[in-house]
């Protein structure tokens, strides 16, 4: 299932594809569920969505790194989002997906897979419907959030992928673990 097909399958009542804010703020988000909660990621970070396949585990790495997969010849790490948020590791189900996200690091862009319980839809969320993240009350670290989007009367947590998948931080966590081993 490619992002393109997701886009075309997305409900179009929320507005036109071309509808962008003057400031260039992205308005399309991929929503997915983690442990029963809705999250959203700006779609321009996302390269593709693939069915979850068992990754090759890498020893001596933190729990949230599920392992590495072969993505058409490139070796891509897979992050368990639940574990990243300090929760129980995700259970694999039929609806589990790996979302391939491009993140920027010092050494240029890098692809990272994130494991989610299920992918929902691509939604248009106008900037006016996005509230700043609350200082507390959200069940994940505040710096992981870019904002709270109002969709159909409920909030979805819009993730700040640069923070969630900060390569430096992830690598540092791995380092700390390696040192303790």
């Amino acid at each position: 299932m490619s992002v393109q097909s997701m886009k075309s399958a997305a409900p179009s009542d929320a507005g036109d594809d071309e509808e962008m804010q003057a400031g260039g703020e992205p308005t399309q988000y991929l929503t997915f569920s983690l442990n029963g909660e809705m999250f959203a990621v700006a779609i321009d970070h996302i390269k593709e969505i693939i069915e979850f396949g068992q990754p090759t585990e890498v020893p001596m790495m933190p729990r949230f790194i599920r392992g590495v997969i072969n993505l058409r010849g490139a070796v891509v790490p897979v992050i368990d989002m639940n574990a990243r948020f300090g929760r129980e590791a995700s259970a694999v189900s039929r609806r589990s997906c790996t979302v391939i996200v491009e993140v920027r690091s010092e050494d240029g862009p890098q692809d990272i897979g994130i494991m989610v319980d299920a992918v929902s839809a691509v939604l248009d969320i106008p900037a006016s419907d996005i509230e700043p993240p609350p200082s507390f009350g959200a069940r994940i670290r505040a710096e992981f959030l870019q904002g709270m989007g109002k969709v159909g009367g409920r909030f979805v947590m819009i993730l700040n992928m640069a923070q969630v998948l900060s390569v430096d931080e992830l690598a540092h966590l791995g380092d700390a673990l390696g040192a303790a081993a």
Partner: peptide, 18 residues
């Protein structure tokens, strides 16, 4: 295939292959 920066600190694993 290099493992990338995420695994840079991993001692004992030098890379990956398919």
């Amino acid at each position: 295939k290099p493992l990338g920066k995420l695994f840079a600190h991993l001692r004992g694993i030098g890379g990956s292959t398919i």
